[in-house]
Design a protein around this nucleic acid. Structure first.
Length: 111
DNA sequence: CACATGACGCGTG
DNA sequence: ACACGCGCCATGT
């Protein structure tokens, strides 16, 4: 089981503020795993994962990763809208991007 | 072991 | 915007 890195990924995802979104690559970087965006997707889908704001993780082009119209895609869209994230068409508003501040970075270092 | 397949991302054309 | 190619990596056939 190579879910060795999942915990740090989960921790990072938990940092994303309500109403904000982060990309898979961004989470990978913050978790100290540059270039390993795919691993983030795996971590989120792992059955052992704790409750997470998984819906706040989207592709770097600000689109939902799941197939258009799929059940997962609809659920993620609904959750984001509930949080006040504006989505026009297939694209999430740029302003919803999470920009980690110094305090957030320091939190990561404490692990 | 060889391939294929994703909740990815970036560079090029 | 669209299409590849390639890097990345766990899982499955």
């Amino acid at each position: 089981m190579s879910s060795r890195y999942y915990p740090q990924i989960w921790q990072t995802v938990l940092q994303i503020p309500l109403g904000k979104v982060a990309s898979y690559g961004q989470i990978a970087d913050l978790a100290g795993l540059p270039g390993r965006a795919r691993l983030v997707g795996k971590a989120l889908g792992d059955p052992m994962a704790p409750p997470l704001p998984w819906h706040r993780v989207v592709r770097s082009d600000l689109q939902i990763a799941f197939a258009k119209g799929s059940r997962h895609e609809q659920e993620q869209r609904a959750l984001l809208l509930i949080e006040g994230v504006s989505i026009k068409g297939q694209r999430i508003a740029k302003q919803a991007r999470w920009q980690p501040q110094l305090a957030d970075m320091l939190f990561q270092l404490s692990f």
